[in-house]
Design a protein around this nucleic acid. Structure first.
Lengths: 204, 204, 204, 204
DNA sequence: TATGAATGAGTCTTCATTCAT
DNA sequence: CATGAATGAAGACTCATTCAT
């Protein structure tokens, strides 16, 4: 019973994953999930409240990974000026992002590009807003620790910067064909660009 | 006669504009346009071939403005290293973008966020790709003119950079509430950031 | 005025011909005729009562040719037993048919295959019925002239035979790719077949 | 449950049959089927993928019968010259056809005359083509067995002959009013006609 | 004569979800 | 827990024809 229940749930999810990845949220129909998973259409509703919840379940692992990343990012130990402008720090960040992409490419594509019509439709913006708040808070704390820094930075600039980071993720997700070497070159360019930028802005 | 025809076309378009701005392409139904404009549903098809064409008509002014911007941007006279790293040049660019946003905020929102299902669904990506090609070409020419420059820049970085610019537009579009002064501050920050970044990368 | 009227009528017809030949009666829309002939949609109704009448006008030349053929076929001078079973007579008939096809291939295709929805939808059957009546009458007369003949022939057989002749037309129409030589061979076969058949049946 | 499903499917089919027989494929609307069968319009789509599939279901018994006839017709044991020119063989064939008509009159009318717009639109031609291929093959084999026969028969004549057979079916279908006795007389005539024809052609 | 505008009924199909059993 | 049946609103688009001017 319990066992079977789990196996059916899994069957539904496996099929739903493929369908969602392939056709996006709107393009995926409950019917097709039912047929391909060989679970009765209405029975699906015994396992998931609605289509949206299926999407959530499919995306959940990615959501967890993102949460984890956010938590780490927000860690107090990062409150360090040397870290901030060091290549290592930046590199760590970007590598994290790339890892995320490589671990969850299809989920990210679904979440960022094909969640139209679902409750996650605005996830990207919400994520950016969350990051922005954290970024501003971070600047506040840094200022407290290193008073000589210029932190009179436009909150909207922080916002846009967070949006940039998501943009990078999106672009890497979208360009599956990128070779590893091309990605390396990009990262080098971006790090130089970004480090120089931040140094100038912070007056560090 | 002629007058009336135009007036009805206008009536349809006005209603369609509102509907599209409000509910996006998919969310807008021909029925609702017909009802609200008090034009017979089938009669609409005497004025527009299909729903997509209505969207096109609504978006056209924006499309024209974008074309114009692209053309200017691509102008040969910009092939100048001093311009490139000058605040003035950058500022001009960003101001153009902001103007575009202020003139076509709702159209841009429609085009970039709610064109799902229409022929303009991929406009953003196509625009970025176009910009990328132009950007790479620009770097090639600049290199020819100033051989000492480092232009070994990852094409994907150029791509991402173009994507950044679109991101800025999107963010400004999305944040209607931004005060002019906050916008100014953002622009200052961004220009510093960006100029420093490009200088470093180009080794200029 | 009068001149122009005729020229417009002609313009409509020319376009309609193409459209009808290409897409059949149902597939041809008044709108497309209007657009391609550059005549106002509603103006067409000043020249033709409705879509059906356009079809009639297009088909008219063929209808005339068929009428003429029917008239000849029914000519008293054919009331001759030697003619009946002679190759020459048969050959004449079949050659007439082939000529008809070569002169009006597209019209025939339209009339026989793509008149669905029009008043000519049943032309084929009506034509066959007419031919049948004539055929039966012919047999009656022949019997009067040559009493020894067996003319106790099933009326339905006559009907089917007429249907066969139309079938031949249809098949020749449909197989545009037939070489002349292949057609000749077919005609030889058919004439042998048919002559032998009729001789046996008539007991001649 | 299972019972009801079948009963509803049957209800739909019964109504659809009548409608299709009465008004043809194009003339039959899903709406009318829904209303007359008292099944929700969209519910119909739980039983049939689309209108075409309903037609298929209605026609299926006929299709099976035709398949069976084709298979028998193609049987090796028919490869016999005596059979070929014997009345018995011909009679068997034609009787089969007449039986088919009497068993499936309305289906045949639907299939041959009113399937416009469906996937069976070209069934008649496809059937004739299939028969033609079989006929030509048959002649080839017969020639191998009886080398003295003239089998230099125009492929197009074979084609037309197959078309004739279908024509007979069509005509019998169309003339419901035919008495049995009239049909018998027709068959006698046709057999005489046809036997004489083939004998002459084959030089047998 | 000519035109643009209008009509209105019509087409098939899709979908997430719920209900009764 | 499972199922088949049902729902009902919604979707875009087509067409021959007529009307008012």
């Amino acid at each position: 019973m319990q066992v079977q229940k789990i196996s059916i749930r899994r069957a539904i999810l496996e099929v739903a994953r493929e369908e969602l990845f392939e056709k996006g949220f709107k393009g995926t129909s409950m019917r097709s999930i039912a047929q391909k998973s060989e679970v009765g259409l209405s029975n699906i509703y015994n396992y998931f409240k609605n289509k949206d919840e299926i999407l959530l379940a499919v995306i959940q692992p990615l959501l967890n990974a993102i949460d984890k990343m956010e938590a780490e990012h927000n860690d107090e130990k990062n409150l360090n000026i040397e870290l901030l402008s060091s290549d290592a720090f930046l590199k760590e960040n970007i590598v994290k992002m790339v890892n995320l992409v490589e671990g969850f490419r299809r989920e990210l594509r679904l979440l960022f590009f094909h969640a139209y019509g679902s409750s996650l439709e605005n996830f990207k913006n919400e994520f950016i807003d969350r990051s922005t708040r954290m970024g501003i808070e971070f600047l506040r704390k840094i200022k407290a620790k290193y008073p000589f820094l210029n932190t009179e930075i436009s909150p909207f600039f922080v916002h846009v910067h967070c949006s940039f980071e998501v943009t990078i993720i999106c672009e890497v997700v979208a360009h599956e064909e990128l070779s590893h070497i091309e990605l390396e070159r990009f990262m080098t360019n971006y790090m130089q660009f970004s480090t120089a930028g931040w140094k100038t802005i912070l007056g560090a």
